[in-house]
Amino acid sequence: MTRGATKYLPLLPVYLIYLVLFLVAEGMPGMWQLMAMLVFYCAVGQAFNIFLGMTGYVNFGYVAFLALGTYGMALSIYHFHQLPLGVGIVLLGLLLAVVMAVLLALMVGAVALRLGGAYFAIATIGVNEGFRYLIEGTKIWGGSEGIIFSKQLLDTFGREVANKLSTFWADVSVLIIAALAALITLHFIRGKTGYALMALREDEEAAKVMGINVTKYKLIAFVTSAALAGLIGAMAWGLKLTYVFPPEAFDISYTVEGIIIVMLGGAGTLLGPVVGGLLYGLAKYWLTVILPGFQLLIFAPIIIVVVVAFPEGIVGMLRQRLKGTPFEPFVL
């Protein structure tokens, strides 16, 4: 096997999981939305991991990028649905989503990435809340009433296609975004960015002394992570749900879910967020079905046990175990 091919081996288990999810969704009745939820959590975990997992910085305002992505899609369909773009309007929405998320990331990055960990976490919370109140206070983008664009979607595409877009293509797109995120993650881990960020995570001061442009690599990871979040928001919340209300879009609990997924699976690993997303999504779903009302009370102690006893996450542990075995090249 050539070196080029071995480089991509770790993608195999990730894509295998995604393939299985897709086949289950397609093959078993009533499983599509559940699989879509799992893929959503995997995708969020992966996008989040690129920054949080690789740098160790906690972006507590992560959900703001998802929200901006949602707004990108909503604004595109709500305002431009009369343009003869066809499906192009969805692409325009994606473009808007990415551009807005990246712009915000650049602005926030410029301010906050210079700060230490705890300050950074608080600063990003501030961005999230501040942005939401800016929308509500200045009444842009529908203000606190948000945007509902089901009707525009129906008018543009007709009932059949609109339904298919919301309940099929939006979910498939999230899967594609997740696959893309995995590729980018691998590229980062194995490339210069990964080494720089690893050095940074171990000891930021030492990395600086070694001549690594710490801020540059942090910014690269931050912006990439934000762009992916924008895409996920545009599809999983925008096109799929066909509305956006500010208090829901900027709901901080999604950031926390993202952190839990990354931690559970293993921060900074490729497979980790996927495993974390699967476990978290499934646990949440089954607890919902069997123990309605008690999920959070069960979850919270589990989170504590995980972060205290297994800080390296499931995949982190797995990698230690598999060292020297033939499986080693597949798990990253």
Binding site: V256, M263, P311
Partner: peptide, 16 residues
């Protein structure tokens, strides 16, 4: 411990 760990743990305490 890294911020990540302590942030998550204190959040979970709040939930409990």
């Amino acid at each position: 411990a890294p911020e990540l760990t302590s942030l998550l743990a204190t959040f979970a305490m709040g939930i409990i």
